[in-house]
Nucleic acid binder design. Structure first.
Lengths: 300, 300
DNA sequence: ATGTCTTACGGAAGACGTAATAATA
DNA sequence: TATTATTACGTCTTCCGTAAGACAT
């Protein structure tokens, strides 16, 4: 299937004139004749009836055009809309977030959408157990995640804000009423682990196996979602670490949340697939950075 | 818009593997890499994320594929169905007839359709005033017409049957009751002429301006359809010549039909556009010839 | 170390233009 | 005769394969 022949056929069927067709395609009339003849021999029958004075479609040509035309136009439209999607900030941008769309997330989206009304943001929750799968599978353009990300095929932007950590324990656990827990104390309480395809570094950050000073933290099984983890916690199987906004969002009567001191703060930022830079992705990163800057200024 | 690049993109999006893609396209892996990169630079962004171990679509690639795929498939389908229409006897064959589908017409259609159940015949009436316009415009594949046809861009098959001529006159005209009229007598009666874009030779045959011996036949205005002609005849404006089956089909109280002797018989046959030969057209010609042969054998 | 994508370079296929030819009105 | 499609032929683009290089597992 030679595309030039098809292209030539479509134009010639509009012009019904070899010289004008050649002009439109930046070809010589002779070449148009060649291409037409070649397509006809490929099809196996005449598509145009032509004398030196009149060019017209044969019935077969007519039917061929009717079937070819929409597909031909669709091809050009697909390329054009991809070009637009790449260089203009339009269409749909798919952004992932973890557990809770904090004000960093919602603020970034609002900032982006107000600067780019032609581009809609689709917010998608990503599971803790697989924070980068959606990105790698192409389902997502960007994700809000915890920095740093040590994945060679991903890159990240600057940190957008810091979040502190809280320990979730059963309300019947003695620590439930305390004002704070130090990270070193975690060695004395089994922690619910994180399962699923998440990379090891990610799992270690979310559910550490050692305290900052190196003392081992006991494990109490694994879960794959926040809800599963909270259920285990409520049942008294052990404790689990959460970012403060996530904890705040999941308050429930049977779980107590206690601030944890002595842990490095979690930094929230954007990640995306290396070399995957469309104008919309770049614009969202800029909008998020701008919003974070504004938010820090407000706080100061 | 380079088609090879699009083709390569579609296959690579299926295989997600350069070597296998190259194999399917009969190319080298290096060429696949070139084509992909070239398409990406044309679009303006990455369509695949790739390391030497993993190839996957970016979100943009995913969306591009979703829009491109149906058009791409449609293109191949259009070419394939045109090829089939050219070399197999399937689809729709458009056949024109004049005024009355005689048994030659209907018999040919029946013979064709019973031999080629996959191909439907669409019978279309063609105006006397423009017997070849539908053919030339590509609306028709074949027409039943009167032979010989002296048009350089058309060709005809053998004669399928002979039809005698009848003169239509007002019932009040003295000839209305006669058993026959000789062609030479036409010089004594104005004939309704045929208007429209019909070629001169065609008009002269349908509404002759001279008798076989050369005596001029007076004219009484022109019409473009059989019904218009019959109306003029009924009003007593003049006579008009018809083929016997057409006359039989248009019997009416205010018009009398009288057989005409001394005119060369009209021969019915097929005509089509030169060089426009699909398998279906050829098959219809063969079916019509076969049917005519059978009909003559029956008559003998 | 192996499999896989990418890059550089040279050769060959074929795409294209020019100009002469044929055909139509 | 003027216009237009077709054909022949030579040139030059560009398509493509080969082979070496880079990269990830």
């Amino acid at each position: 299937m030679e595309f030039r022949e098809l292209e030539c056929f479509v134009v010639l069927s509009e012009e019904l004139h070899f010289a004008r067709t050649a002009e439109r395609l930046y070809l010589s009339p002779g070449r148009v004749s060649q291409l037409t003849r070649s397509l006809e021999s490929r099809i196996g029958a005449r598509l145009f009836h032509r004398t030196s004075r009149r060019v017209s479609l044969t019935p077969l040509g007519e039917r061929f055009l009717a079937e070819l035309r929409p597909a031909y136009d669709g091809l050009a439209r697909a390329v054009e809309s991809a070009r637009r999607a790449a260089r203009e900030v339009t269409g749909v941008l798919r952004v992932g977030f973890l557990a809770t769309p904090t004000d960093v997330v919602t603020g970034s989206v609002r900032a982006f959408e107000s600067r780019h009304p032609g581009c809609a943001v689709e917010l998608v929750e990503i599971p803790f157990s697989d924070p980068f799968g959606g990105l790698r599978a192409g389902r997502l353009d960007l994700v809000f995640t915890l920095l740093p990300v040590d994945e060679p095929d991903l890159v990240t932007g600057e940190g957008l804000n810091r979040v502190s950590r809280e320990l979730g324990v059963s309300v019947r656990h003695p620590w439930a009423g305390r004002a704070a827990v130090d990270a070193e104390e975690l060695a004395g309480l089994p922690l619910i682990g994180l399962g699923g395809p998440a990379p090891a570094a990610w799992r270690e950050r979310v559910t550490p196996s050692v305290t900052p000073s190196g003392r081992p933290i006991p494990r109490a099984g694994t879960v794959t979602t926040v809800q599963e983890g909270l259920t285990q916690v409520a049942l008294g199987r052990g404790g689990m670490l959460f970012c403060a906004p996530t904890a705040a969002h999941h308050r429930r009567a049977d779980v107590g949340f206690v601030p944890v001191t002595g842990l490095p703060p979690s930094i929230l930022g954007l990640a995306w697939v290396k070399d995957t830079e469309t104008a919309a992705i770049r614009a969202f990163r800029e909008a998020a950075a701008g919003h974070a800057l504004g938010a820090r200024a407000m706080a100061a």
